[in-house]
Nucleic acid binder design. Structure first.
Lengths: 230, 230
DNA sequence: TCCATACTTCGATAAATATCGTATTATATA
DNA sequence: TATATAATACGATATTTATCGAAGTATGGA
């Protein structure tokens, strides 16, 4: 029984608590320094450096040097998507405190998945875009219809510019809290950045949490017909 | 950053070569003794026993005692499905010999996934059943249409009996070689057993490989319109 | 009753590796 | 130039754990 996909290579990297925490922290899609990540994983900088070297060696993260600092980030959206799948499979976190419980609720509502939106809001938006006929799901991708092209133009998203980026244009990404799919890829990222530009959503420091602003609530209502509670 | 799904619990179990091999071997859906699994993983029986205890403790496998023997099996189709997802994520196996290469090709063509059919043949059959309107994919399940009920009755599959089994009736299962979905659950199992009954397919000892018989080739052609090359 | 087989338990061992203290390099700032 | 900070390199340590030998338990067969 020597022939079977090599599951151990990836899982061994994720089986370590500190590395898993580092990767989970990086899933906010932002760059982070080694010291920041060390603090989040409650380990010394040397240890974080050791783990980050291993993660970069295995192409899970990439880094950019800038002066004294070195910024780390998830390598690409394939890695991010894979990590989301792992999270969807894993048992849900044990919630201890009330504070953690409400934080988890907010994360389940809206968070970043690498460089696009995830959580209930993202899943709802993706469903609406399908129901309205803007997107059609085919295999693991979404296809933008003619109607969709008009919609995205109205929203101010530059489809032509996005499609020039050399990456998956619109893959469907598994959502660990909703256990279904949301929109990822360049289009997911384009929408995400447009929402920020419009002031509909805001990112929070050191968290994957996304805040829907008042302007965002009316925006999502007007453009998508989506009522957001939280 | 304490709030994040607990990825380490599952991955730690899969990160070990011997355990991964044992689980991969059990993915043929059959019961296997501890000695058999020890032999397949090239470890001593004590070591296999140690791993199997761990796997059973974490509800990945179940066992039945029968005389001196103890038979182990994947716990349920959720576990099997999860393992398939892990395999689909993991890098493909390094093929060394010509023998391994042809074995891999046969596995990619048709193999068991827990207790139903997987591989190219299974994906093709599933697609055909959707195109012909026997099945409709909805969320993560397949729904049998009225037309489908007739089809399955003609094929000799007892839908009523299957639906009485207390398990997922017809979930869609991720295929690691084809990177798309095939039919699992009780219906997938029912079809699988019916194919064997009809003499269309044959299982091989100590392998997930499935052989399509000559009778099977004409059967799949007549009932599904599927030409099978291998 | 005796023996062989299947499996598990226990204890010892060896290997892997996460962690941190200390030291070093590189960069920014005063 | 001197000092503080960010990150890495190296060595030592401690912890974990997979592995196997030896022994023990349960079962089937001669």
């Amino acid at each position: 029984m020597s022939i079977h996909p090599n599951i151990t290579a990836l899982t061994a990297l994720l089986a370590e608590k500190s590395r898993a925490t580092i990767l989970a922290a990086l899933m906010d899609g932002k760059f982070h320094t080694a010291s920041e990540l060390a603090y989040m994983a409650t380990i010394k900088p040397q240890t974080a450096s050791f783990h980050l070297a291993k993660l970069e060696e295995n192409n899970l993260v990439i880094s950019e040097k800038n002066g004294r600092f070195r910024y780390f980030r998830i390598a690409n959206d394939e890695v991010a998507n894979t990590l989301e799948i792992f999270m969807s499979i894993s048992p849900p976190p044990e919630v201890r405190s009330l504070k953690q419980s409400s934080q988890l609720k907010r994360l389940e509502n809206a968070r970043t998945c690498y460089d696009h939106l995830a959580g209930r809001v993202s899943v709802n938006l993706t469903n609406i875009m399908q129901e309205e006929g803007y997107l059609e799901r085919c295999n693991k991708k979404f296809i933008v219809s003619a109607k969709g092209e008009l919609f995205f133009r109205d929203l101010g998203v530059d489809l032509v510019g996005l499609s020039k980026k050399r990456r998956s244009f619109s893959h469907s990404c598994l959502d660990w809290s909703e256990r279904t799919h949301h929109l990822g890829g360049a289009l997911g990222n384009g929408l995400f950045e447009r929402y920020i530009e419009l002031g509909w959503i805001e990112t929070k420091a050191n968290s994957r949490e996304i805040v829907i602003t008042t302007r965002g609530k009316s925006g999502f209502k007007d453009f998508f017909g989506l009522e957001i509670q939280m």
